[in-house]
C-alpha cells in the first residue's frame, strides 16, 4: 500500500509545476491552464485523504471544487476573449491601461 506521504509529495510537485506555469507566462489562457494543474492537485489531495481516512467528506469537497472551477474558467475565458479583441493581444500586461 502506498503511504499517504507519497500522494502529498506528488500533489506538491504538481502544485509547484502549476506555480511555475503561472509565474513564467504572460498570456491569460496559459495562466488559466497552469491553474488547472493546481486545482487538479488539490482534488487528488482531497480524494487521497478521503481514501486514507475512510471519510466521504473529501469526495464531496472535490466535487464542489470541480464544479466551481468550471464557473471560474467560463468567466475567465469570456473576459480574456473580450479583452484580447479590444487590445489585439494575448498578453495580460496590457491590463495596466485599465487602472483607475
Amino acid at each position: 500500500m502506498i503511504p499517504e506521504e507519497y500522494f502529498l509529495l506528488l500533489t506538491s510537485i504538481l502544485f509547484v509545476i502549476g506555480i511555475y506555469g503561472i509565474l513564467s507566462r504572460r498570456e491569460g489562457i496559459s495562466i488559466i491552464i497552469s491553474s488547472e494543474i493546481i486545482v487538479n492537485a488539490a482534488i487528488i489531495n482531497f480524494v487521497s485523504a478521503a481514501n486514507f481516512y475512510s471519510a466521504l467528506n473529501g469526495i464531496s469537497y472535490a466535487l464542489i471544487t470541480l464544479i466551481m472551477i468550471v464557473f471560474e474558467t467560463v468567466v475567465f475565458i469570456a473576459l480574456m476573449v473580450i479583452f484580447s479583441r479590444k487590445t489585439g493581444s494575448l498578453s495580460i500586461s496590457k491590463l495596466g491601461r485599465y487602472k483607475g
Partner: peptide
C-alpha cells in the same frame, strides 16, 4: 482570440 505567440 487573435493570433499570437506564447512568450515566456
Amino acid at each position: 482570440m487573435p493570433e499570437g505567440t506564447v512568450k515566456r
